[in-house]
Design a protein around this nucleic acid. Sequence first.
DNA 1: GCTTGTGAACGGGTTCACAGCT
DNA 2: AGCTGTGAACCCGTTCACAAGC
Lengths: 237, 237
Amino acid sequence: MSEIPTAAISRLVTYLRILEQLEGQEIARTSSTDLAERAGVSAFQVRKDLAYFGRFGTRGMGYTVALLKRELVRVLGLNQTWNVVIVGVGRLGQAIANYPGASDYQFQYVGLFDVSPELVGRQVRQLTVRHIDELKDFVRDNKVDMGFLAVPPERAQDAAQALVDAGVRGILNFAPVVIGPRLPEGRPSEGSGQQEIGDEWRAVIVENVDFLAGMKRLAFYIRNPLLKDPTGPETPA
Amino acid sequence: MSEIPTAAISRLVTYLRILEQLEGQEIARTSSTDLAERAGVSAFQVRKDLAYFGRFGTRGMGYTVALLKRELVRVLGLNQTWNVVIVGVGRLGQAIANYPGASDYQFQYVGLFDVSPELVGRQVRQLTVRHIDELKDFVRDNKVDMGFLAVPPERAQDAAQALVDAGVRGILNFAPVVIGPRLPEGRPSEGSGQQEIGDEWRAVIVENVDFLAGMKRLAFYIRNPLLKDPTGPETPA
DNA sequence: GCTTGTGAACGGGTTCACAGCT
DNA sequence: AGCTGTGAACCCGTTCACAAGC
């Protein structure tokens, strides 16, 4: 049905961040022009993006920071608690677990998983690292919503499959690989009515955060500056 | 000339990764259909993306992995050495510095910078952490091409400005803030001919890697699954 | 026959101009 | 007057169908 550009969602996140900054500076009102400048987009864009979700401003006046912020929080689904597990507790996984800002919005790290005997059993950020074999039971018992995947690339597909089998609804994939339903080995699926392989993936959302890709895009645009990058969405990874 | 979708560049990076995997499995040939399946896009898309840069296949035959890989490396600018500094050597900066895969393509970390007295002087990955005041001289003397920005959000704008003043050509920004030329405080610029404030940013490419944003996008799409996210594992038949 | 390469059609996202409210 | 909200125009990226070549 609805047609909301995915890029608009990324921008909403940016607007929200800016509103928080404004609130921190005790600035109570803003405008599409002001937000646009701070976000690095056009004022048209700001108004259009907001219009997808409602009418949050006052004509002639602009937006009140507190109200618009509250609305964006609601729109983005940040007014609920999200239970998160991190799979892969190496340097990157630990950096993520300790990065400030996640808990601001009720993202709660409830479990850490790894396979390494050196890590399993250790405490990281008040949590005991568990073996990945325990993932499925843990996700069920703790109502886990999403998994962050920070394992080495060669383990990413298996770990992703484990997360999906365990029943998470979304994966934030930090590994530099495409994860998804495993391709049927032989010929492509000739859907004969019964359960498709990979169907568990149907309802799972995957979002990628790939800094190696960002690095390579950067290299490209430095050498080809004429094709200027519109503050690229790490969107399509 | 300059009409290459930025999304196409992201996909080229993905294709390249897939080609490396194929090479690792000693698979010598592939096709647009095969690449498309593995990348999670359509075969049309693969062919169109490649067509922006040349003709790399053989009709009726497909692509040879080694050749296509070599061409993508060239197109993306990965056949040269890139000297990189990391600004911000906290947990995230260290995780980046130690993440494998960067050096595969001649990305060389040549300098680490921070302001914290506890970090400056310490050794991380064979490099001594320097104070950020030394950045400008260092960038000049070491022909630094790009800077990775892994400082806390409140320091990001200043650190970015320091990188730009120092003369880097690109910034990979891990901080969850929009960085850019500082807005003139008073009224907007009335370009009166002389040097604009923020002009040093003209030629600088900024690429963002923001996992907090990814997390929030994920929350949104979990709650609104109908608006399916294109980065997802959909394999357009 | 099979797979690439590409001009053209299509569709969706951004830009615009202006209507509508304060 | 000032700024938001929005239908319509525009433009760009994706999809398509088919021509070109092995």
